Computed example of a mutant assay.
Amino acid sequence: MLTLDLYFFLVAGPAVIFAGISKGGFGSGAAFASASLLALVVEPGLALGVMLPLLMLIDVSALKPYWGKWDKQAGLLLILGAVPGVLLGAALYKVAEPDVFRVLIGVISIGFVLWQIASKRGMISAAARALPVWAGGLAGLVAGFTSFVSHAGGPPAAVYLLSKKLGKTEFQATTVLVFWVVNIVKFVPYAYLGMFTVQTGIANLVLAPFALLGAWLGVKAHHLVPERLFFALTYVLLSVTGVKLIWDGLT
């Protein structure tokens, strides 16, 4: 059960602002840290249920500036692959205990940090040539699954899109398009599985201004805050949160 007390909002408010800043100014890759933070104070399914409508609100606010600037083929491949990935995540949620999702979210959090560090150090690089069509579908499948279980579909989608050597705006626009659609697709199984409640709806209404504020701050911070500093703080946050979730899930 979700208890809308002061403790919840002290965690949720900053978490939602962080998601807005990430999507509004620094890409969407780190936005899922908000769900990881909420999973520390409420059951993981409810944490995901609280965040999805807020992420959709942020998606809509970020969609207009990039409308029509995406790579249609790459976007379509990722979306088509993501749909069965979402269904796979829904099937797992239906049979798994909450602790399984705590561990999954924790592992994905730490995996994201390791993936980013490896990318920065040149241990992982974009493919010399564009990956084949089937790789786009596979990346979409993984993105759909990780997006369902932790709102963390960014890294697998990025691997495929980086291989396409898209321009900065085209890359961002394609990412915005893909996860706008994926989040809409996720809404149906989330509702069916009971991840939305009266309490999550009330939380969404209260937290919506935080989401919009975060998106606005993200645009401003994009020009003021060094990207390196922002992501360094994100990696520390995700590492600590990931370890705590894995510990809680296993013990």
Score class of each variant (00 low, 15 high):
204 N>Y: 10
158 A>D: 03
78 L>T: 02
88 L>I: 08
243 V>K: 08
183 N>Y: 06
206 V>Q: 09
6 L>S: 12
193 L>K: 11
49 G>V: 09
115 W>I: 02
83 V>K: 03
77 L>W: 12
205 L>F: 13
5 D>K: 04
228 R>C: 06
28 S>L: 04
167 G>H: 07
134 W>Q: 11
210 F>V: 10
17 I>H: 07
173 A>M: 10
81 G>C: 07
40 L>Q: 14
90 A>W: 08
193 L>C: 08
232 A>P: 08
163 S>E: 01
56 M>D: 10
182 V>L: 01
50 V>Q: 10
185 V>F: 06
52 L>H: 11
213 L>D: 07
82 A>R: 01
74 A>Q: 05
56 M>K: 11
64 K>T: 10
127 A>L: 03
18 F>P: 09
41 V>C: 12
16 V>H: 04
16 V>F: 04
11 V>M: 08
25 G>R: 06
7 Y>Q: 13
97 E>C: 05
156 P>E: 00
165 K>Q: 15
119 S>L: 04
242 G>E: 13
169 T>H: 13
62 A>V: 10
143 A>L: 00
43 E>H: 11
157 A>H: 00
49 G>D: 11
216 W>I: 05
244 K>H: 12
153 G>I: 01
247 W>M: 10
164 K>R: 15
4 L>Q: 09
156 P>I: 00
174 T>E: 02
50 V>E: 09
29 G>K: 04
235 Y>P: 15
148 F>I: 01
131 L>G: 01
122 G>I: 04
50 V>R: 11
202 I>T: 10
111 G>P: 07
20 G>S: 05
149 V>I: 13
145 F>E: 00
178 V>W: 01
68 G>R: 14
173 A>C: 09
95 V>K: 08
135 A>I: 02
154 G>I: 00
70 W>Q: 11
121 R>W: 09
239 S>E: 12
33 A>W: 05
56 M>L: 15
168 K>E: 15
193 L>S: 13
7 Y>T: 12
79 I>W: 04
5 D>W: 04
14 P>C: 09
26 F>M: 08
55 L>D: 12
110 I>E: 05
159 V>K: 00
74 A>L: 05
29 G>I: 02
113 V>Q: 03
182 V>M: 01
157 A>C: 01
12 A>K: 02
189 P>S: 03
115 W>D: 02
247 W>L: 10
248 D>Y: 13
203 A>L: 07
173 A>T: 10
190 Y>H: 14
108 I>Q: 09
7 Y>R: 14
152 A>V: 04
244 K>R: 15
56 M>R: 10
220 K>P: 07
98 P>Q: 05
201 G>T: 06
187 F>N: 04
44 P>V: 08
236 V>D: 12
126 A>W: 00
37 L>E: 07
157 A>L: 00
224 L>W: 14
154 G>M: 01
26 F>L: 05
215 A>R: 15
33 A>E: 07
31 A>Q: 05
142 V>G: 00
224 L>Y: 13
155 P>T: 03
